[in-house]
Design a protein around this nucleic acid. Structure first.
Length: 676
RNA sequence: UGCCCGAUGGUGUAACUGGCAACACGUCUGGUUUUGGUCCAGAAGAGUCUAGGUUCGAGCCCUAGUCGGGCAACCA
């Protein structure tokens, strides 16, 4: 069961309450109900972790149910992708279900509804029905077919089912209340005719139930105790319950629907429809493009299941709409990969470095620790030679002393190797550096234990041996959108905010030969750069890495001038509240909650602030409601200061003080007496 | 001019169900470090949308308002 003081989110609380009120914990059962019309994304991960997490916590089964009631949008490809993603996240479902498996049962219940006079067939146009539906502020009008005979309804419904009627010509509607304040209760449609192959039932049916009819009834059939969905379904709950009322049998468990807020991530979108658009218009290369917020995109990018479940955990569950900063997700993957990723060296933007005093043709194999965070980790060998490649940004001919890298005349350490000193550069005709010449302190080899090897130098650079390095392609990703909430702008489309530089392909990066045998999805830390994952486009001939996420970079941060992805400066929203009167009010409001030192401090602060206010400021506060003790005390203290500074006593003041003196609150009356 | 949700540091969540607002991310210092990473130590940052009310005491309860979101698909 739960730990004593662990705080529960409101969904867990509801379950605890139900259990406390007599629900048998053996009856707990949850479900995750995706529609197979797209890939799962990081927002779904929240729902997956919630439902499966609840299952784990209570040892209760969780069904995976495909909500496949609309054959015009759903495909087997999506079913497969969804199954794969959930399994990859590490969750196991109890039963794999399909709403389509219940079509017959739902149909039978629909007949029952008709026979009970609770449903009717309507043959009006959708335009006409929409018109009759009214608006949120105006009630609807009854359909002319609302009261036609049960026999006629049965007959028409049978003809809908048999395929005798045209697609779109007739629907079955529940007979509820066209005047309801809830639009969903205004005789909602239960069945429509769709003459299209279904991915599971093929051509068996040409009528398909709508969400509201299918979902709750599926929950009931599966005996789901808690049907958890997102907030936009809140108004559906009334209908969910109404439908259940029609078919519910006392001997069964009655599911309940509860809603939580969907999770949004900054700088991306979470709508399956819009993600599909990105795929179809080729903005990205597919649902699993590493820039996509899909589970499969994140996986390909290099995110681990642990990082995603951790993200869901720390993000929490609530009922208010919010946008979680993508930096939290990045923190989660760095945290995981820091502990697990093998450290290697790779140079993305190479420049040649020659060690002038290192013997021509000599090759040394140096030892590199695989992961300093893991004491049990092994080492691997890295070849070292006279000609190396280093990162172009790691060298400047001259630089200030804040630059901890290579300059002419300065010493730096080559990671796992020697300390070197910059001597000279070779440039091409246009002045670009083509070679950097250095001398190497041959006594300073890492791990040799010599005095030279333990010398402190200002910086450490990563490098690869030019003749041994493997050429590799590296794909560097930036956020897909330039706006924090790209689909929140009414006047603009999310497409207007596409980041044109979201993908940078580096064709000629060089990595150490150790990576020759890396397999797809292997994750590495390229030291000083970030975490990289071998992409599935790799072959024996060509290594291709995805940059999963960079290392935290306090140096880069100082140097980038407010690029689009730098956070905005803190807003000084308190500035106009800093006026002394407001401060006094603020402090006063809480005055009676304080005691001891805090009380004294508050009193001193009010008195100090009072020096800066005039009686005109204070005067309106003399009328403060009797109950606002704190404010009255604050006013009294301030008044004391003003009087001391020569403020004339007025009738108002005297009346205020007199009333305060007589107040039951001691703090107040004492304060008032002192200035009486 | 309807109904239903929601409102706590920059962001996301807490607050033992009414007892002097906590955690994480982010930001900023300092220390350690053969990764400007990690790790360690510390700091700044909200008085809980507003106004009334109930209470000895309100972020939690009540009332009204403000702001944000949802609701008029034969989508889910």
């Amino acid at each position: 069961m739960t730990e004593a003081n662990e705080s529960l989110n409101f969904i867990e609380q509801i379950i605890e309450d139900d259990l406390a009120n007599g629900l048998d914990k053996k009856q707990l059962r949850f479900r995750f109900p995706p529609e197979p019309n797209g890939y799962l994304h990081i927002g779904h991960a929240a729902a997956i972790c919630l439902n499966f997490g609840l299952g784990q916590k209570h040892s209760a089964p969780v069904n995976l149910r495909f909500d496949d009631t609309n054959p015009s949008k759903e495909e087997q490809e999506y079913v497969d992708a969804i199954r794969r993603d959930i399994q990859w996240l590490g969750f196991e479902w109890d039963t794999e279900c399909y709403s389509s498996d219940y079509f017959q049962q739902m149909y039978d219940w629909a007949i029952q509804l008709i026979k009970n006079g609770k449903a009717y067939v309507d043959g009006q146009s959708s335009e006409l029905m929409a018109e009759q539906k009214g608006t949120p502020t105006a009630p609807g009008k009854d359909s002319p077919h609302r009261n036609q005979s049960i026999e006629k309804n049965l007959d028409l419904f049978e003809r809908m089912k048999s395929g005798a009627l045209e697609e779109g010509s007739y629907v079955l509607r529940a007979k509820i209340d066209m005047g309801s304040t809830n639009m969903l209760m205004r005789d909602p449609i239960i069945y429509r005719i769709i003459k299209k192959e279904h991915h599971r039932t093929g051509g068996n049916w040409c009528i398909y139930p709508l969400y509201d009819w299918a979902h709750g009834e599926s929950d009931y059939i599966e005996q789901i105790s808690h049907s958890i969905c997102t907030l936009e379904f809140k108004p559906h709950r009334e209908l969910y319950d109404w439908f259940l009322d029609q078919i519910y049998d006392n001997s069964n468990l009655r599911p309940k629907q509860r809603e939580f807020a969907r999770r949004n991530l900054s700088y991306t979108i979470m709508s399956k429809r819009k993600l599909l658009e990105l795929v179809q218009n080729k903005t990205v290369h597919g649902w699993d493009d590493p820039r996509m917020p899909t589970i499969s995109g994140l996986r390909r990018r290099g995110y681990t299941p642990e990082s995603i479940t951790k993200f869901s955990e720390v993000s929490g569950i609530s009922k208010r709409d919010s946008v979680t900063d993508v930096s939290l997700l990045e923190f989660c993957i760095r945290e995981d990969l820091n502990k697990t990723a093998t450290r290697v060296m790779g140079v993305l933007n190479p420049v040649k470095l020659v060690l002038t005093n290192y013997p021509e043709g000599k090759v040394e194999m140096l030892q590199a620790v695989n992961n300093p965070e893991d004491a049990a980790s092994d080492t691997h060998e890295v070849p070292f030679s006279k000609e190396l490649l280093i990162e172009r940004e790691d060298f400047k001919e001259e630089a200030g002393n804040k630059f901890f890298r290579l300059t002419i005349g300065n010493e730096v350490r080559l990671k796992n190797a020697y300390i070197i000193q910059g001597e000279s550069v070779v440039k091409d005709a246009s002045g670009n550096i083509t070679e950097i010449h250095c001398t190497c302190d041959l006594d300073s080899k890492s791990g040799s234990g010599t005095e030279a090897s333990t010398r402190k130098v200002k910086g450490t650079l990563h490098w690869v041996s030019k003749q041994h390095a493997l050429q590799a392609e590296v794909r560097v990703y930036d956020r897909l959108f330039l706006d924090e909430a790209p689909d929140s702008h009414e006047e603009k489309s999310f497409m207007d905010f596409i980041n044109p530089a979201s993908l940078q392909v580096i064709k000629n990066a060089y990595v150490e030969p150790f990576l020759k045998d890396a397999s797809v999805q292997d994750k590495f830390q390229f030291q000083r750069l970030g975490y990289f994952t071998l992409d599935l486009d790799s072959s024996n001939q060509q290594l291709i890495f995805n940059k999963t996420v960079g290392l935290r970079d306090s140096w880069g941060k100082q140097n980038t001038k407010s690029a689009p992805n730098s956070s905005k400066p803190p807003v000084q929203k308190g500035i106009d509240q800093k006026n002394p009167l407001n401060e006094i009010k603020k402090i006063s409001k809480k005055y009676t909650n304080l005691s001891g030192d805090k009380l004294n401090t508050a009193r001193t602060n009010i008195a100090k602030l009072a020096e800066e206010v005039s009686f005109e400021d204070i005067e309106p506060l003399l009328a403060t409601a009797a109950k606002k003790i704190g404010t009255r005390i604050g006013v009294t203290i301030a008044l004391g200061v003003l009087l001391k500074n020569g403020q004339q006593r007025t009738e108002n003041i005297n009346a205020f003080i007199e009333k305060a003196v007589q107040d039951a609150n001691e703090l107040l009356s004492e304060e008032a007496k002192s200035i009486q």
